[in-house]
């Protein structure tokens, strides 16, 4: 498991002992996604379909942009009512690559506000909210 944070892009990777066909629904099925992130989800996995993930008091909301089972899914990510990080304010691309019988997951989050104060305020407030939610 590695992570790289460069400018406004976060890249995280993970190796999972299951094929992409098994892993993919964990990004599109509300009952499966909450087994690893968030505590409630509303997902409509088709281009333009809603992506909504509740994490404690915070809700990440966006829309599916690309849905190509079982190898690639892209969705936008933001906070409703937040002018500087609106739903669709950043995008998460997940690529599942077969590795024998396993899967390499590469997740790229683009448009992530920097934690520095001279960028989007609500951005890092949002991220802090996510942290609190994820920690709980």
């Amino acid at each position: 498991m590695t992570a790289e944070i460069r400018n406004d892009v976060i890249v995280a990777t993970e190796h999972i002992k299951a094929p992409p066909e098994v892993v993919f629904p964990y990004f599109t099925d509300p009952a499966l996604i909450v087994t690893w992130i968030g505590d409630r989800a509303e997902l409509d996995p088709q281009p333009g379909g809603v992506f909504s993930l509740g994490m404690g008091e915070t809700v990440a909301r966006g829309a599916y942009i690309t849905v190509e089972p079982p190898y690639r899914v892209v969705f936008s990510w933001g906070v409703p009512g937040d002018e500087t990080l609106p739903p669709g304010g950043s995008t998460v691309e997940v690529v599942l690559t077969p590795d024998g019988d396993d899967t390499m997951v590469v997740l790229t989050h683009r448009g992530v506000p920097s934690t520095h104060l001279d960028t989007h305020r609500a951005g890092w407030e949002h991220q802090l909210g996510l942290l609190r939610g994820a920690a709980g």
């Binding site: 976060i10 993970e14 087994t35």
Partner: peptide, 29 residues
């Protein structure tokens, strides 16, 4: 602010670790 930045950089890796655990627990080889 550096420690906060570090925490943020761990958000997705932590999430993917939980994903790995969830998938491999539900689908044991």
């Amino acid at each position: 602010l550096d420690p906060v930045r570090e925490l943020l950089s761990e958000f997705w890796p932590d999430a993917l670790s939980r994903l790995k655990k969830a998938v491999e627990t539900a689908h044991p080889r």
